[in-house]
Design a protein around this nucleic acid. Structure first.
Lengths: 335, 335
DNA sequence: TTGTACGCGTTATCAT
DNA sequence: ATGATAACGCGTACAA
């Protein structure tokens, strides 16, 4: 039988309330009493029941991570980062993968909050920008943190990278190599990060005094197949780009496979750049020049914000990294 | 304020016990009573508290998935499969990613079981074969399912694919292409699947009457870098292989990058095959011939076994798939 | 077929 | 600084 708090109290010769006090790090407990309780806890290998704690108290010692992403790596890294921070706090992470195109998304998340009474919630895109989701959460008076929010940046605490700045940095890199016609493959429409990256693409062109050409921008949805489709379209142009920047690595990989199919040598004939968690970017050939988004760290920081004693709407920016792996300039000097 | 069972009872004009009966699908409830309760539940948007249920009853309506893998795709797919089956049952999945080289792994998992009182547990390799983990779980009288178990195959319910058979099938494919010197890159030592795949490699060689050459077998640990190392070693041999079969796709991708670095044309100069969830295999160039392990389905079936009313030690085999993507035979006729 | 009373293991309140 | 006792919201045993 699992030991209960009564067993600990009996062994330590104190009341159960005192055991509770020690367990919750409350003040005003004599040092020797505290030591006796800790000893008893260790002896019995006692661990409090999550269910009882959350029923009786005002905390559940659980936080939820509602996470979806086209990249499983992203989800995994995010979970790992959040969990790293949680274990240090004795808090349990409840990871809830969701489908971003589910029409019951808001309900699902609200249901999670309502039934499990988690102490906090971390949301990743695209749910971070779904008004319906945010509305439902607001009803529950629960603290929550947004990862890479688009519109709702000041609603609550958030972690993010400078997506526009990162995209612009990548563009400057490509421009410095001599590229003048640079294609862009957009992300999924419901992700704010996609717009932010496109904005960075445009601003860098502006700064370089290069006219924006809509024909060089193709829609996408962050998956491999979209990269293939966009790639075919861009290479079929009368004046094809000499470099292509995809809003994430999966699409860049799709673009890369199109280039290989056509017998193009990358990066000699065509430079390809991505943006992401650097999982796919390392595996493909040739490895991609990419913006590395430190997803694990973002998860860690999100949990850190959530678990802070004095939770507030802090916006925490995480630095990105530009990883150069293809350096060749354009084969033909651009127009 | 969240509605409680009393509120539902009052609105439906019945006792809380009757509401409870309806919620738990117990028999012997009048149809109109049942309907009234359902109506009241819907009106109030009532959802029972997980904490109260698990404290009062003998179920928690939660199951745990303790999962680690070198491939984040594997983890993600496994979580998704398990979750798919759980939502249909109104059960919540608690996903616990773990580090396979953590020395507190057994404690962590036992702690999860002890504190959350989950109704069941799903374990993935390599924890499935850690005696210490299995021992600790056994103390808790909890049902659990093993995914791809090695030694403990009859201990409890399990889902798996025929790893040896799959590896042999891939070998037959490579042999049919004319390859005679086929390299093999092993997986991580603590994974039973690694040994099973190596066994399939050897048995296929035996069946083909080809002598086993230890020099063609290299250690690995299932990650990209290991594929690179093993690849370098295999290609440095006096008589290098004409085909290489890696125990998973990440290592095959590493092997592939070595081939590219050396200017080898794949599959003309060298055929490369993998084994895995088909995530990496589709992204790299050229796409890998691989054994596809339907991870999502395995997760689904594992949860299905766990949630069955009459839980028993059923062993459920899931079919694998051989996906051909590189068909060229050896450049020089082997041996 | 339905209802009453009690207990699950912990925290919160209020006393000492 | 510590303890007695009442919640928390639900399932279970038993009664009706």
């Amino acid at each position: 039988m699992r030991p209960k708090i009564d067993d600990v109290a009996r062994l330590a010769q104190v009341s159960i309330k005192t055991v509770s006090r020690v367990l919750n790090n409350e003040l005003r407990v004599a040092e020797d009493t505290r030591a006796r309780v800790h000893a008893a806890v260790a002896t019995l290998n006692y661990r409090p029941s999550f269910a009882a704690r959350s029923l009786a108290g005002h905390r559940s010692f659980q936080i939820a991570l509602a996470c979806d992403n086209p990249s499983p790596y992203y989800v995994y890294e995010m979970q790992s980062g959040v969990r790293d921070r949680c274990v240090a706090e004795g808090v349990r992470m409840i990871a809830q993968p969701y489908d971003h195109d589910s029409d019951q998304l808001a309900e699902d998340i609200e249901s999670l909050v309502a039934t499990s009474g988690v102490d906090g919630l971390i949301l990743t895109p695209p749910a971070t920008d779904y008004a319906q989701v945010l509305d439902l959460i607001a009803r529950h008076d629960i603290r929550f943190v947004l990862v890479s929010p688009g519109s709702a940046q000041d609603l609550t605490a958030s972690v993010f990278i400078d997506n526009a700045g990162a995209a612009a940095a990548m563009m400057r890199h490509l421009l410095a190599l001599g590229h003048r016609r640079i294609g862009f493959i957009c992300g999924h429409g419901s992700y704010a990060t996609s717009d932010q990256r496109l904005a960075g693409y445009r601003s860098a062109l502006d700064d370089a005094g290069i006219a924006f050409d809509p024909a060089l921008v193709r829609p996408g949805n962050y998956d491999f197949a979209a990269g293939v489709d966009a790639g075919e379209a861009l290479l079929a142009l009368a004046a094809p780009p000499t470099a292509i920047f995809a809003a994430n690595d999966e699409m860049a990989a799709g673009m890369l496979s199109v280039a290989h199919h056509r017998g193009l040598s990358v990066p000699n004939d065509l430079s390809i750049a991505g943006f992401g968690d650097d999982a796919v970017a390392r595996f493909v050939w040739p490895p991609l020049t990419t913006i590395r988004q430190p997803v694990r760290r973002m998860g860690y920081e999100a949990a850190d914000l959530l678990l802070a004693p004095d939770f507030r709407a802090e916006r925490r920016e995480i630095p990105f990294e530009l990883i150069r792996r293809q350096s060749t300039g354009p084969a033909r000097s651009g127009g």
